[in-house]
């Protein structure tokens, strides 16, 4: 039963994507909507990203210092380890898990409400491809803007660690900065950005799918919103494993 349902859902998701990735009825309308979505899904997420990154960067630095306080380990390894954590996991996987909550529930509830109030039916009656009109701008906008959020997250997290070094005495600032710079692997940045692109696509498309097929009323919209966050999170973790295997090994 679970397998049948999963297969049916996957098939419907593929058909939904087929409808979504068709040529827009009006490019000018598509462009305008995409810019609106960049603002709503991307720019509005910047404060959250900054706050979380700042604190996580600080916490990472403190915990690294606590765990590597050995005379055999050089002090700059605190900065180095913080950098690797931020670049490899936090700025993409963890950030996207957090954004799945904010952006995913936003998308699912918006589209779900449009479904239950017959706004999607109204679009269909007019001859508009509703999946394309509603979803494609969201996917394009979020995938386009996610690398910006990811880079912002990296920078802010490093600043969070620097603040700990600057305003406490657990590690000298020069050692922290040296740790950030030493043995730097540029590929890790690209690896993080590639992952963030894939995760952004998963969040936007899965959440749109959950909202688009809502049946019922307000209760079902709430459930769709929860399903969107849960499903997006699971697929982010699944693809995290797959992409890490493909890109780093």
């Amino acid at each position: 039963m679970i397998l049948t349902n999963s297969l049916a859902n996957f098939g419907r998701y593929c058909m939904f994507l087929t409808r979504t990735f068709s040529i827009p009825d009006r490019w000018s309308v598509f462009g305008k909507r995409t810019i609106q979505e960049v603002s709503k899904l991307g720019i509005d997420s910047i404060p959250l990203v900054i706050i979380i990154s700042l604190f996580i960067g600080a916490v990472c630095t403190i915990q690294m210092q606590l765990n590597v306080s050995s005379p055999l380990i050089p002090s700059y390894s605190v900065g180095l380890a913080t950098r690797e954590i931020i670049l490899l996991e936090f700025s993409n996987s963890i950030l996207c898990l957090i954004l799945a909550g904010k952006v995913g529930s936003n998308i699912a509830s918006e589209i779900g409400t449009m479904r239950v109030t017959e706004q999607i039916d109204a679009l269909e009656i007019m001859g508009v491809n509703s999946a394309n009109y509603l979803t494609l701008p969201k996917i394009v906008a979020f995938v386009f803007f996610m690398p910006v959020l990811s880079v912002l997250c990296m920078g802010t997290a490093f600043i969070g660690g620097w603040c700990v070094a600057a305003f406490t005495d657990i590690i000298p600032v020069s050692r922290y900065v040296y740790g950030l710079q030493t043995m730097f692997t540029e590929w890790y940045v690209w690896y993080g950005l590639i992952k963030s692109l894939v995760f952004a696509f998963l969040i936007a498309s899965i959440s749109s799918y959950c909202g688009y097929y809502v049946k019922g009323g307000a209760l079902q919209v709430g459930k769709a919103s929860t399903d969107a966050v849960v499903s997006s999170s699971i697929f982010i973790l699944l693809f995290d494993v797959i992409l890490t295997k493909l890109l780093l090994q």
């Binding site: 409400t113 109030t117 017959e118 706004q119 039916d121 109204a122």
Partner: peptide, 8 residues
Amino acid sequence: FQGSALFD
């Protein structure tokens, strides 16, 4: 439509 279905 019954509920008007205007775009909010």
